[in-house]
Amino acid sequence: MKQHVPPVDQIERILQGNKAHARRTLEADPEFFKGYADKQRPGVLWIGCADSRVPETTISDSKPGEIFVHRNIANVVNTDEVGANSVLDFAVGNVKVQKIVVCGHTNCGGAAAALGDANLGPNLNKWIEPLRELRKSHQGELDKLKTDYLRGLRVVELNVQRSVKNVKANATVQQAMKGRGLTVHGFVYDIPTGELRALDTAE
C-alpha cells in the first residue's frame, strides 16, 4: 500500500519543484530563458510509452528544448489515428526534427496485458488490440520463450517495429526521408538497468 499523502502537499511539492528547477536553470545559465520562448529547435521526435518510469528527457540526460514528445499507452502508432499523426505532421513538417525515435520498454503494462485477453474496458481493449494481434501472429515464437517477462519483451519489440513501420507510412515523414534525410529509429529501454538499446528496424 502507498502511504497516503494529503493531496495539497503533493501539489505544493510540484510547485516547489518547479521553482527550484527555474532557479537552478538560471544559476547554470543566466541567459537560458532569453529567446527560449521565440522558437524551439529539437533534433528528435520521441514517441514513447506514458509509463512514469520512462521519462525521455531524464533518461537521455537531455536539455529542455532538445526532444519533441508524444507519449501514449504502449507507444502505439496507427496509420489512421489523428492524435499521433498530428504529432508526426507538426514535428516533421513544422518543427523539422531530424530523426524520430520510437521507444518501447521492458516491464510494459500494455504489452503484459496483450499476452492475455482480459477485458480492460472498451477504450483500452481497442487501444492495445494491435499488440494482441502481434501476439497472435507470433504465438509460435512466443511459446518457445520461458517466461512472461520475455514474452512481454518480445511483444514490445514487435510493437516498436510495427510503430516504426507506421511512422514511415505517414506522407509528411516519407517526404522528409527522401527530401532531407530524416531517419526513423526503434529503441527499447531496459528498466532493470536503466539503459537504452537500439533495435534493428531498417527495411
Binding site: N18, H21, E56, P64, F68, V95
Partner: peptide, 13 residues
Amino acid sequence: SDSRVPANEIMGL
C-alpha cells in the same frame, strides 16, 4: 509535445 516543456524537469519529479 513542445520540446521546451519537459514534464519531469519542469515539475522537479
